[in-house]
Each structure stands twice: as C-alpha cells, then as structure tokens.
Write a protein that binds this DNA or RNA. Structure first.
Length: 749
DNA sequence: GTGGCGTCC
DNA sequence: CAGAGGGACGCCACT
C-alpha cells in the first residue's frame, strides 16, 4: 500500500513522519513507506499520480534506494511508454535492479497498457499505428521471409560466370560490399553480395585472410569483371546506405552508377521517425524478420573481428542475407512511396540525387592546420592550469572542475550558494545560465565559466581535430548522415564539422585552422535568415513579406513594429529583443521562455508577443493553422512535401502534446530550409561536374556551403554558387545568399 | 550506458 | 497548478 501520496502543490512539510523538508511544493511526490510489493499492488494509483505531471523526487525523502528508483521511474512523464516498452530498458547499476526487473516483468504490460484508456495514445503500439502513413494501413506487408534460405557462396569462376550472366540479364539488383573498416577512405573490400530476386542471393568472398581461409577469387579479377555492370547507368542498383558502397568502390577506381534506390532513404522519406533506419531494425519492423547481426558473427568490444577475419561460410550467409533483405525492403517501401506523389518526389528529386553529392563532399575532405591547433592546445592548457589554481584558491581545496557533481558539492554545500535551478533528475544545476546569475554575487562561478569555455575548446576541438586527419590524404573526412534528423536536416559525425565554434573570439581561432591549400581560397556562402523567409512565405504575412522584399534588416523591422518606433529609432537593445522574438517564434517558444531569455518579466514578454501577432497577423494565423492541421492529420509537411509524423500530437499528456505542437511549428520551417539547401547542393555539384571548374564543396552546415576554389576561378565560382543557391527555390520572398572569401574559414565569413 | 553540459544552426 | 525552445554531436564524470 502507499502510505502517502503528495500531489502537485501539496505542502511537503505536511507529510507525516517526514521531517525537515524545505521544499515549498511537492514536485509530484510519491512517498511509499511500504515495501516494493505493496507499491506493486497499488500500481494503478501510482500511475494516476504520474500523470499529474510528477517528475522528480527530492532525495531527502528517499528511504530505500530501490524505492527511490521505482518512484523515479513511475513518476517520470514517460512512465507508461517506458514500462510498456521493455523492462530490459531499465538500466542496471542500482543494487536491487534485478528485483525491480522481476517486478516489472510480472506486470503483464500489454493488458495493463490497454486499461489506460485514452492514454493509449502514448503506448508503443499506438505510436506505431499513428506514425505509419494511412496509405500503409490497408497495404499488405511483403510475404514472410523464410528462415532457412540457402545462399550461394561463389568461390570458382564457373559459378561466378553463371551469376554474372544473371546479373547482366537482370534489370535491377541489390548489392552490398563487405569491408575491413567503416572509415571510407581506408576501407578495403573483403567481399561483395548480390540479390536478383527475393531469396536468390550470393556472396563473393575475395579478401578473407585468416589462417586456413579457403581459396577465393582474386579481388582485382572480381572487380574487373563486375566493373561494367556496376558502372552501367541503365542497370538499376538497390542498396542500404549506398553512399558507403559508392565510396568503397571508388577506392578501387569503380564509379558506381545507376544508384536509384537506397532502402535507408526510402525508410527515412516514408517515415523519418518510425524506426531507426539501419537494416536490422528495418527488417524487424517492416518485414518482421530478425537478421543476423554483425555482432553475432564478429563478436563485440575490443575482441570484435573485422570482416576479413570472419569465416567465409558465416560471412557468406550474413552478406547474402543483407543483399536479400535489402531487396525485400525495397519491394516493401517502393510501391507505397510511389502512391504518395509528394514523398516519391522528395525521394527521387532530393534524397537520391543528394547521395553521390554527399559522397563527393566526404571524399574531398577539408584541409586543417594541425600545427596551429597544436599551438592552441598548449596555450589553452596553460590557461586552464591557471584557472584551476584560482578556483582551488577560492574554494580552499582541490576538486575536479570538470565534474558537475564535485562542483555541486563545492558550490551548494561548502560555499552555500543558492540553488537557482535543478536538473531533470533533481540535482542542483551548474549550467552556464546558473553560473552567470551566481557570478553577480560570488567569485567562483566566473572562474568556472571561463574554465568550462576553454576546456570545451581544448578537449573537443584543438586536441581532437588533429587526431582525425587522414594519414593518406592529409585531410579531415567527416561523415554526413542523411537519415538521422527527423526534420530532413543532415548531421555530421567523426568529427562533427557542424558545431565548430564561431560565437567567441577564442572559438573563432579554431576556424582559422580550417584552411585552403596553396593556390586556393575558401568560399563560404550562407542563406541569410532562411527560416524567417520561409516563415514569411508559408504564413503569407504581408508585413513580413514586405520587410524581406524591401531588403530590410528583419530584426530591426520587427523591433520597429513591436516597440512602435521608426526604423531609425530602434536601439540595439530593441533589436536584440526582436531577434529573440523572431527565433522564439520559429521554435514555438512561450512567453515564459522569452521572458527567461530576455531577462524581463513574464507579462512584458507576453506583451511583446501580443504586439508581434497584432503587427504580423498572418504569422499568428499560420501558427494556429499548422497546429490544427497537425492535430487533424497527425503529421506536418515541408514546402517540398517531406513529412514529419507527430505521434504525440493528440496524446492525453499535455506536455507531450505541447512538445509535439512546437515541433509542428518548427519542422516545416527547419525542414523546408533543409530541402532548399539539399536542392542547391545537387545543382551546384552538377554545375561543377559539367564545367570542370577547379572547385569543390567541402562542407555543409545547415544553411551554409563551404567550397575550396582555385584562385584563378574565384569570381566565376562565387557568382555561380550564389546564383544556384538563390535559385534553389522560388518563394514569395527572395532567397538572399551571402558569400565571403578567405584563406581560412574564419576569414571567409 | 546515462547524465550534465556545451558547441553549432 | 506545472510546464513552458526546434534539430543535431561529443566530451567528461560516474556507475
């Protein structure tokens, strides 16, 4: 049984038998003084509490660790989802988790979830149903995949010739390359697999080199034989993440052509959030088939084998299955994509053509001055030591400045500074925002802020970037991910080149290490205010449209409207506020958020917003319409027809629902911007290919393209680049592109 | 592996 | 009455 349930707003110090709690209100508190079994028996009540918005539990009230853990789980807003999904997702590490896990397993989640009535909207089953396009509901899934398929392993020229002939006769086939590494520039091919129809697949091993490996066809011969069909544009290729295969083949001088269907991108365009887009998950979700995973045949961790060390028989089944499943996934996705013209178009005119462009950019890489970064690391290291000493001096003891936990003890226990904010788990926050506030009254926070800033630069950038320079090319080759961000944006990994510092002077020094080779310059071109321009277009607001048509500084224009002054009367303070309002609108921010950002009262912030909507009524109308549309259809779209499903848009839980509404407002703008720059990248690359100009795209940062350009062709390339980026979409406002030139990335801005 | 924090657009 | 800013990646500490 539950001895006490404190609801939101209850005075905590009224709790019987729990003395000395200084909180004014309970943040949704479950105080169970009974045993776990008792809690379990009363689970229904506890769940009801959790939907009152309970989130955290003050530590002082915890009697047993296991209780605390259970309470925390139950009180988390995601409770139902997490409970329903899987008890194994409960992480271990707490002393009695095994016991907890047993308890959770006993709950019979499915029936329990069903009893929740309307809250069902948040269950995984409901999410899957909502997030699957309606066209899919009536659609039969592809035929079940048999589990006992035999695939050919090709080790002799007779069987090879047989398969080559079949590939030559096929109009399309799926294929996959197996390699020694994931790093594109250095990966060596170990084998290739093909599928020509569901269940008919084969693997050609040609690089397994473990002791006692069977004789295999020589790789050079195999690739020579395959080259004509791989380079044949009319031969349609299907694959999973073909950007990788294209790159690997290019290492062997083969230019993959006829890249028409990438199942990863089919899945992404079909439903960007319905599942992750790796093959194992796709097979499970859409074919109800469990694939052999790489870990299962290669092991994991440091002892994981590379593909060349795998037994040919194991590797053969794994690789051929990959090709087989890829083909089946394509047969599942494509008929459905074809039925939705907007999605088909996003797939065929944006995502597939972008694939080789990204491959080009990755392979081009970017030149980085490792020596300069090294100097900066040393310098930063010295300054960090000084700051460390200063901090120890103020605190009167040594501690790890990088540990939020140790820092919390020093600040809030030893120095007794006020706790201004807590993290989602209830520990006192030491975030920048908090330190800034505290720095007004105390000395230590300021030192910590400076330390954090510099430590970040050193550990993330100046120390790390030199380590990822490719030995052979001398350049940094990031990996762009095309199916990660739900809105349609790209992401960049290993290293992330989309979050290189720019705001502070010290940060910009890192950009100075991104350089052009001798005889070349960097050109950085970015869309000016692209998301606000898209907002003007989508909302059709006369005032906003006119501001852009007149070429006004939009934040200044907004300030003039909101504060009721002439353009000349706008102070820098007003402009700053207007800028925050503009960005806030794009993100669906509330008066509360705006107030916090601008350090003004909530009422004042609300006045700004009211005033904004008064002056730009079209924007308000658009916001209301898009919200309503999202509720009605369960998804929102970009201008190009890309969809983002919002499974939580009609959730009973208001927080989830409001979150989904914010996404509904933001996604069309962020996503349209992504569509536009992707289109621009395709057009720019096509133009560079045609003209054979001595210029290459080396980076994309959401609204910016960076090119490396021969000095002699600077003017021509810069002009052509701006033209093509501006023309990537025709909106009701012009798409302004600004392009700078320099010897390094900082200069080019 | 998770949480806290910080970098970018 | 609480909650109240969209999308990413990566580092460090800690378990």
């Amino acid at each position: 049984m539950i001895d006490y349930l404190a609801l939101m707003g209850d005075k905590v110090d009224n709790i019987p038998g729990v003395p000395g709690v200084g909180e004014k209100t309970a943040q949704g508190l479950i105080q169970g003084l009974g045993s776990l079994d008792a809690i379990y028996a009363d689970l229904e009540k506890v769940r009801t509490l959790s939907f009152r918005g309970a989130k955290t539990m003050p530590e002082k009230l915890i009697e047993h660790r296991e209780m605390a853990y259970l309470s925390y789980r139950l009180a988390t807003i995601k409770t139902d989802v997490e409970l329903a999904i899987a008890p194994e997702s409960i992480h271990c590490g707490q002393p009695d988790n095994n016991r907890l896990r047993e308890l959770f397993e006993d709950l019979e989640f499915k029936s329990w979830v069903k009893d929740l009535g309307d809250d069902n909207a948040n269950s995984p089953a409901a999410i899957a149903a909502v997030s699957t396009p309606e066209e899919n509901n009536s659609e039969p899934t592809s035929p079940a995949v048999p589990t006992d398929i035999h695939y050919d392993i090709i080790s002799d020229k007779i069987l090879f010739a047989d398969w080559l002939k079949r590939l030559q006769q096929a109009a399309q086939f799926s294929f996959d390359t197996e390699t020694t590494a994931l790093e594109i520039m250095d990966a060596k091919i170990v084998g290739v697999s093909f599928a020509i129809e569901a269940g008919v697949a084969a693997y050609i091993p040609c690089g397994h080199d473990y002791m006692g490996a069977p004789e295999q066809l020589p790789i050079d011969w195999v690739l020579q034989e395959l080259k004509p069909i791989l380079e044949d544009t009319s031969k349609i290729k299907i694959g999973q993440n073909l950007k990788y295969d294209r790159s690997v083949l290019l290492n062997y001088g083969i230019e993959l052509r006829g890249i028409e269907f990438d199942t990863m991108l089919e899945s992404y365009v079909w439903n960007s959030i319905g599942s992750r887009h790796n093959m194992d998950d796709l097979a499970q979700n859409y074919l109800d088939y469990k694939t052999v995973t790489f870990e299962e045949i290669a092991g994991k961790g440091v002892k994981q084998l590379t593909f060349n060390q795998l037994k040919v028989e194991d590797a053969g089944h794994y690789a051929a299955e990959d090709a087989d499943i890829t083909l089946r996934l394509h047969q599942f996705f494509w008929p459905q994509l074809e039925k939705v013209p907007t999605l088909k178009s996003v797939f065929q005119t944006i995502e597939m053509p972008l694939l080789p462009v990204l491959s080009h950019i990755e392979r081009n890489g970017t030149l980085v001055d490792a020596k300069l970064l090294g100097q900066q690391s040393i310098e930063l290291g010295e300054r960090l030591v000084q700051l460390e000493r200063k901090a120890y001096d103020i605190a009167g003891q040594e501690f790890n400045l990088s540990s939020p936990k140790q820092l919390g003890v020093i600040l809030f226990e030893q120095q007794k500074l006020p706790i201004l904010k807590k993290t989602p788990t209830g520990t006192p926050s030491t975030a920048e925002e908090v330190l800034q506030e505290l720095a007004l009254d105390y000395p230590l926070p300021k030192v910590l802020m400076e330390y954090r800033g510099l430590a970040k630069l050193k550990s993330t950038y100046t120390d790390k970037l030199p380590l990822v320079i490719n030995k052979r090319t001398g350049r940094i080759h990031t990996s762009y991910h095309q199916a990660v961000a739900a809105t349609g944006r790209l992401s960049s990994q290993d290293p992330n080149l989309q979050n290189i510092p720019i705001k502070t002077e010290e940060g910009r020094r890192i950009r100075q290490a991104f350089i052009a080779p001798k005889g070349y310059k960097l050109v950085a071109a970015d869309y000016s205010q692209i998301e606000l321009r898209i907002m003007a277009h989508l909302s059709d607001d006369a005032g906003l449209l006119s501001a852009f048509e007149k070429g006004l500084d939009v934040h200044r224009a907004t300030a003039a409207e909101v504060f009721g002054v002439g353009l000349d009367g706008v102070t820098s303070e007003m402009r700053r506020s207007a800028k925050a309002i503009n960005f806030g609108l794009i993100y669906g921010m509330s008066a509360f958020g705006l107030a916090k950002q601008l350090h003004v009262g909530r009422n004042e912030a609300q006045q700004y917003i009211d005033r904004y909507f008064e002056r730009y009524p079209g924007v308000q109308r658009y916001m209301n319409n898009i919200r309503a549309l999202a509720h009605e259809q369960g998804y929102v779209e970009t201008l190009f027809g890309r969809r983002l499903y919002l499974p939580e848009i009609n959730a009973k839980n208001k927080n989830l629902q409001m979150g989904a509404e914010r996404t509904a407002i933001n996604a069309p703008m962020q996503g349209t911007a992504a569509d536009i720059i992707k289109t621009a990248m395709i057009n720019v690359q096509a133009w560079l290919d045609e003209t054979q100009l001595d210029a290459r795209i080396i980076m994309q940062v959401h609204d910016e393209l960076v090119l490396e350009v021969a000095e002699s062709q600077l003017v021509q390339v810069r002009t052509g680049l701006i033209e093509r980026m501006s023309a990537a979409a025709t909106l009701k406002v012009p798409l302004l592109v600004e392009a700078g030139v320099g010897n390094n990335w900082d200069e080019a801005h």
